[in-house]
Simulated scan of single mutants.
Amino acid sequence: MWMLRGFSTFSGASGLTLNKSKSDIFFNGVPAGTISNILQVSGFHHGVLPFKYFGVPISSKKLTKLEGMKLIDKILARIRGWGARHLSYSGRLVLVQNYLWGGDADYKRAPNVNWVSCCLPKEEGGLGLKDAKVWNRALIGKYAWWLATKKDHLWVRWVSHVYMKGIEWSDYTAPSDSSWTWKKITHTLQAFKHAYVGNKWLDSDIPYTPQSGYDWLRTKHPKVNWRFLCWNSMNVPKTMFIFWAFMHRRLLTKDIMARMGFTADLTCDICANSNEDHAHLFYSCSYSVRCCSLLQQHLHITFSITDLVHWYSTSMLTGLQRRFIGACHVAMIYWIWMVRNEARVHSYVRRPEDVVNQILNDIHTRFLRLNLSVLHTKDLAWINSIHLT
């Protein structure tokens, strides 16, 4: 009865109501008559151990691989459902490692760009995804901060009394007969002790957050000089993604496909004058050269596409003009790749003039969505000088 009164009080305070039809009660060493009375008064079902949650057995011991597969199967079933909807590359960023590249949860081919690179911040050449293993350790790192700073926290007091028994958390090692969960936690705590000076996280008074722990745990890489060109607000996700793969030289041009055993024909499907590789397709193919020339005539600039990143970093034009021109060239890389795929699959090549007109109109439309009232007259005059058809 006290338990039911506690549930009633909680429901009155929180507004949350217990669903008795989905609730079980478990007994151990209780007489059958008492069990019957409790079930009749409470309305709960009589639960039987062991029980399952989301199809996974609830146990104090480490789950076996077979027991965990039911939960994995549920996740994969949801992923396959996403795949059936033909998500774009940018949409697949929410999926797991192999699915990002293969479109199938059971896909076995190695990904085009290694997972470590995908999990780097965008400014370091990645996609800004989180490494799940590192992120999990960062979440566990919250326990280290509690142990270091929250001596009156109920969990800290319980752990100190039951497990640590007066030993400092930074010097503590879990006994061999501890549960696997506690061993995993204490193993992670040992990694975090190097980030504390005394009991201060990173020798400061700033509180610990999982994001700060993640940044401390992960391996840092130099910032890439094309980050502002790729993640320009005038770009759209599909052009950003293709340009990102382009900068990593991991688009599946025919030379790469040949090394993977997918094709023996290396001839460029657009110009048919040379073998297709990254340098030819985007820099020296007559079609690409023509697209770049037409685009730059409209934009009143001249530079080699191989110098795009350097030009973007050093140009003396205004920030908006550089963003507009950069977005046009990022879109051009995307469209060259699309035209290449159309030529390969359908033996059809769009006119360079049509591609350039499509690029300029798309970027100009995005430009018009900006707050024109705060734009400098110099930028407006420059935009109006671009001939659109």
Rank of each mutant, 00 (worst) to 15 (best):
Y143T: 10
A32Q: 15
V345R: 11
F241S: 04
Y89R: 11
W226R: 01
H161S: 15
E123V: 12
M247K: 12
C271Q: 06
I58T: 05
P31E: 14
L16M: 12
Y208N: 06
L229Y: 02
F303N: 01
K238M: 11
W382A: 08
Y107G: 05
L87T: 05
F262V: 13
A132S: 14
H187C: 07
F228N: 03
D73W: 01
T34A: 14
A258W: 04
S293H: 10
R350F: 13
N136M: 03
H194R: 11
V94T: 15
V113S: 10
N235V: 07
G261K: 10
V374T: 15
A13S: 12
A148K: 09
G68I: 09
D379W: 15
W182C: 10
G15V: 09
M332Y: 00
S14Q: 06
F303S: 03
R109W: 03
E168H: 14
T253W: 02
R5G: 13
V197E: 03
P222L: 03
K62H: 07
G55K: 06
I167P: 02
S179K: 12
L252Q: 13
V159A: 12
S286N: 14
T377Y: 05
L217F: 01
L93T: 15
G47Q: 11
I333M: 05
R366N: 01
Q190P: 00
C230L: 10
N28K: 15
A84G: 08
G91D: 09
T219M: 08
L217G: 07
S88Y: 12
P50V: 07
F243R: 06
P57T: 03
T302R: 08
K130I: 12
N28A: 14
A32V: 15
L147Q: 05
K238D: 14
W180S: 10
G91M: 04
H298K: 12
N273H: 12
E276N: 08
R80G: 14
G102P: 07
F44M: 10
S170I: 06
G83I: 11
T9D: 11
L49H: 13
S23M: 09
L308E: 02
V236H: 14
N275I: 11
I206N: 09
K122L: 01
K61Y: 03
S176Y: 07
V374M: 14
R259V: 07
R344F: 11
D24V: 01
D255I: 01
G102D: 07
R157S: 08
T267L: 15
L320N: 02
T314P: 04
R80T: 13
L139T: 02
G68A: 12
S313V: 09
D131A: 13
N19S: 10
K238I: 12
K378G: 12
W82L: 08
R250G: 06
K62N: 02
L16T: 05
F243N: 09
T239V: 13
F51T: 09
T239S: 11
A245T: 12
K254Y: 00
I25D: 13
A138I: 02
F51I: 08
K378V: 14
W180E: 06
K223Y: 00
Q297R: 14
F228D: 08
A381S: 15
S170Y: 00
A138T: 00
W158H: 11
T173P: 00
L294H: 05
V339F: 00
G12K: 10
L368G: 13
I301V: 14
A381K: 10
I325W: 07
